[in-house]
């Protein structure tokens, strides 16, 4: 059976939520952290919150954003290793901006879906597409017999709705209840996540 593994990025592959880490650079860690948390819990719609956070973070040069992500965002090493070992069948499906997370995604070396933005003179000018995770996962459906989705927040619900097997991953945050209710598995540790994915 040909299986695709579709990972959320923030809090699933990375130990840290990326936007709050970036916000530290401009002294808005607490503010963006609170917005991010409320978004993960589904208290604020993802699209609105994301556009607002991008606007606040747009003053940081894109090259500096990439540097911060490289230097400060910690990864789940076991998850990264799993993706690298199964790179042909792994996908990162993230609402994050491609131009920001590109170097990190290149390291993972798998296929990716991201939100897109217009960049001018090393600055984010505007967000042109906010990724619809449901559409993204549907677009690979015909290539596979089975889609496995792994995520933690409200933004992953559309991806879970179209997957065959769903894993709520609560290593960074407690996974939200809506997602848990849609899940087949709930795991809280990266080693058990990878062990599970290898047995599925």
């Amino acid at each position: 059976m040909k299986t695709a593994y579709c990972f959320d990025l923030d809090g699933t592959i990375t130990r840290d939520e990326i936007l709050p880490v970036l916000a530290r650079e401009i002294g808005l860690f607490e503010e963006i952290g609170a917005l991010t948390e409320a978004t993960i819990k589904g208290l604020i719609p993802f699209r609105k919150s994301f556009l607002l956070r991008c606007r606040l973070l747009a003053e940081i040069p894109v090259s500096r954003v990439q540097e911060i992500i490289h230097e400060q965002v910690r990864l789940y090493d076991d998850v990264v290793a799993f993706i690298q070992e199964h790179r042909k069948d792994c996908f990162v499906i993230t609402g994050n901006i491609g131009a920001w997370v590109d170097p990190l995604l290149r390291k993972l070396d798998c296929r990716v879906f991201t939100s897109e933005a217009e960049v001018e003179n090393d600055r984010l000018k505007s967000v042109t597409t906010v990724l619809d995770k449901g559409q993204a996962i549907q677009s690979i459906r015909s290539e596979y017999d089975r889609l496995v989705a792994i995520g933690d927040g409200m933004g992953d619900v559309p991806m879970f709705e179209h997957a065959h097997l769903r894993v709520a991953f609560g290593a960074t945050h407690e996974p939200i209840q809506t997602l848990v209710q849609l899940s087949d598995y709930v795991v809280f540790h990266e080693a058990s996540l990878c062990r599970l994915l290898k047995t599925l």
């Binding site: 209710q181 087949d184 598995y185 795991v187 809280f188 540790h189 058990s192 599970l196 047995t199 599925l200």
Partner: peptide, 29 residues
């Protein structure tokens, strides 16, 4: 213990232990 895998059986009211065991052991070789 943090590294336990929780397998959900949302139909627990109407299903038996065989259903739970079938879900829990899925993929074991």
């Amino acid at each position: 213990r943090k590294d336990v895998v929780f397998v959900r059986n949302p139909d627990y009211r109407t299903t038996s232990n065989s259903h739970s065991l079938n879900l829990g052991a899925r993929g074991f070789s």
